[in-house]
Design a protein around this nucleic acid. Structure first.
Lengths: 222, 222
DNA sequence: ACAGGTCTGTTGTTTATCCAACAGAAAGGA
DNA sequence: TCCTTTCTGTTGGATAAACAACAGACCTGT
């Protein structure tokens, strides 16, 4: 468990907590760890979750597949990010989607009850942790709203532009790379891959942006 | 402030807290109240929020309007629901959307810092409150994901069916009424009103559902 | 270097959405 | 009650997305 401390100290959840304290908190929170290989399912739709998870390494997709096999990527989890927070409410029902490792991944599991019910005064950093989790959930909330704003765009072009400009803002540069391949990006934005590919090339021809593989550069000039 | 206790005791935020304790907590949390008339803005895009809000009465829409005047209703806030939780993170930037009262509404404002920083042991129900807020944010998170799953449907028909079937599930009956009018529902699902209206009638003609005004009944038979 | 698979761009056809415009129904106010 | 405004359903033409199919580029492992 010790080897994950260096990863955890850089997460939002444990920001401001010292190495030794993290280690003692991992015990306090009954943390367990498990590794997943590429393509393996972390959770399947219908399961009941009683944990809060942090992705220590790798990459996960929260996705759902309907009767006809259409895949929708609801969210992408990157290292240091938390997930499962939507199901920590008692009686919140079974998981509505699948969580799958798209790369070799390491997941940490925390006992949610211990986070909320143990008296904060018993553990000096517990208050800090609660605050951090709070901020993290709140942050995720914001990113969900952000995705909703991509999705609420009517055309593929508008969806692409709002996603890419947000990504540029997030990475603080007009040149940036995304972790999605074309099919994944299309699933993420809920559009057709070929139509999206087409639209990307049109945008490039019009001088709005440029790209090579997954490296994008947005043009300043409109 | 006393007259809001009966409303607050039924909210998720104060569930399990007695009347007297609610009243003392309102002081503890530096709560203020304000009424809004129909059409009035509670917040405008660009403002900075340092509060957590509860809608005591009425109805709010979280919405955004783009350069060309296209309106997107991102979420609807109903009485007892909390909002603003996405902006409680320090340095989370200005509000990205508008919050507007679509009915005569009453909003309670809480000082977010007091919720998270006051020592829980000072106020016996503080721990309970933190837990409740936690659950509430988590719940909202879930409903955002739910909306994402409507939006990720490709066709207007699928969006309608997923929204309506979820609403039937939520209201626990195949007959239910929705608070949106047609234009609002179209904005909520990010589709064209006339096309949606058309699709609704097709679904009715095919025997999938029935409706009068905003009263819907889903058919059991496929 | 080669073979197999995946990823990406490209095209043409089908289909659905968007948009504008209108008419009847419903609601609200004077 | 009448008038006005809003809401809803309906239609047709312009536009865009979905879909299928394919070819070349790019990986990957042998």
């Amino acid at each position: 468990m010790k080897k994950y401390v260096s990863i955890l100290k850089r997460t939002k959840l444990f920001s401001g907590v010292g190495d030794d304290d993290i280690l003692s908190m991992l015990n306090c929170l009954n943390a367990t760890v498990r590794e997943y290989s590429k393509g393996e399912y972390v959770f399947c739709q219908g399961e009941y979750i009683r944990n809060l998870m942090i992705l220590a390494a790798g990459r996960l997709h929260i996705q759902e597949e309907d009767y006809w096999g259409n895949l929708n990527i609801l969210n992408e989890i990157r290292p240091g990010e938390m997930f499962g927070e939507a199901y920590i409410v008692p009686n919140s029902g079974p998981l509505m989607d699948d969580v799958i490792a798209v790369e070799e991944s390491v997941v940490l599991f925390f006992d949610i009850e211990r986070i909320l019910t143990v008296c904060p005064s018993a553990c000096p950093f517990h208050t800090r942790l609660v605050k951090n989790i709070f901020y993290t959930i709140s942050d995720k909330n914001k990113s969900l709203v952000q995705k909703l704003s991509y999705m609420s765009q009517r055309t593929t072009r508008e969806k692409l532009l709002s996603y890419l400009s947000d990504e540029a803002k997030r990475q603080n540069s007009s040149s940036f790379s995304i972790s999605f391949n074309r099919q994944q990006l299309a699933d993420y934005l809920s559009v057709d891959r070929s139509a999206m590919s087409n639209e990307l090339c049109k945008l490039r021809d019009e001088g709005m942006l440029d790209f090579h593989k997954s490296e994008f550069t947005l043009s300043q000039a409109k």
